[in-house]
């Protein structure tokens, strides 16, 4: 029992470290090689946990090797465009000015059902409104609408808009995040003033408070426990 516990902890922290060092990408955003490595690592790690007869090192060494290969390939592909296209592939144009490029669809094994599903998911009901449909290397379809069907921007309307700044959390579930407060250029005095303005006596009464460098504040009081 204790052995299983210790072995699981070791594998867990090794996995956690490997995945943390590999990056923060979500499953759907992974490139092919990243997905392969993530799936392999998870599978490899499970074997020494299921079978106590397999040395733990047989699970740890493959994780380390895959981690090293992934970091090296990712680093080298940053430097070499040729290597990047060889390993990760290239984006493919599936739609050009409303016309579906059937040969590209076939080449990428992308079915019409999948295409229609992606169009619906992105709120596009008319294929004619798509200027370019690009199948990205992570398997996602990017749609660029034709200028006539693109939403009008404030810039096009020549409407002046104000920068709301980047909101940072300053109070999270009653705890003041001093580093964020300092980074925004505010201090406790400013915070207390804001709290008073929103009717709170102390940060402990706040569930979430964000602030940006432009002074925009979001405030959510903590609900009373039932």
């Amino acid at each position: 029992m204790a052995i299983v516990l210790v072995r699981t902890l070791i594998i867990y922290f090794a996995l956690l470290l490997a995945m943390r060092l590999l990056g923060k990408r979500q499953l759907g955003e992974m490139e092919l090689s990243e997905f392969v490595v993530a799936a392999l690592i998870a599978d490899l790690a499970s074997h020494p946990l299921q079978d106590m007869g397999i040395p733990l090192i047989n699970g740890l060494v493959p994780i380390l090797v895959l981690f090293c290969c992934e970091v090296l390939i990712a680093g080298l592909s940053m430097k070499s465009i040729r290597l990047r296209s060889l390993i990760f592939g290239r984006p493919s144009l599936l739609i050009v000015k409303g016309r579906i490029l059937q040969r590209e669809m076939l080449k990428n094994r992308f079915t019409l059902d999948e295409l229609m599903q992606e169009l619906r998911a992105q709120g596009v009901s008319d294929l004619n409104s798509v200027a370019y449909g690009i199948l990205e290397t992570n398997g996602k379809l990017s749609l660029l609408l034709s200028p006539a069907d693109s939403p009008v921007t404030a810039g096009q309307l020549q409407v002046k808009t104000e920068d709301t700044g980047y909101p940072s959390i300053v109070i999270s579930d009653g705890r003041v995040l001093e580093a964020n407060l300092k980074h925004l250029g505010y201090d406790r005095l400013w915070l207390n003033k804001q709290l008073k303005q929103y009717g709170a006596d102390s940060p402990r009464q706040v569930f979430l408070m964000t602030a940006s460098s432009t002074g925009a504040v979001y405030f959510a009081a903590k609900e009373a426990a039932k």
């Binding site: 060092l21 060494v61 380390l64 090797v65 090293c68 970091v71 090296l72 680093g75």
Partner: peptide, 13 residues
């Protein structure tokens, strides 16, 4: 630096 560390770790393995 990360790539160098990974390469060194691979050589070590």
């Amino acid at each position: 630096r990360r790539e160098l560390c990974a390469g060194a770790l691979l050589l070590l393995l």
